[in-house]
Amino acid sequence: MSLDKATIRRVATLARIEVPDAELEATATKLSGILSWIAQLSEVNTDDVLPMSGGTDLKLPWRADVINDGGIVDKVLANAPEAQDGFFSVPKVVE
């Protein structure tokens, strides 16, 4: 699979990663290489194999509906670049 520069630009925008124009070509080559390496998996015949989510027999753990977390505003805000009156404070988001 080969990715063009326009696709790289779009994916970068969606992921909020800055990729300078000068690096688009090289990034495309690198990502295409990774994709074709992964694509080798499609050579395996999986006709009668059910989709699986892992190599082990793990089940999704469930929890009871009890309140045993929260009430830690100071800790939640500890790493916030800016906070005010218990809120995270961020640059104005205009819709």
Binding site: I67, V73, K75, G86
Partner: peptide, 19 residues
Amino acid sequence: SGASAEFGASPNEHVSFID
């Protein structure tokens, strides 16, 4: 997460690290 889902608490009171 185990944080309360109740409406109307003060800001970020019902927040766990997961949320």
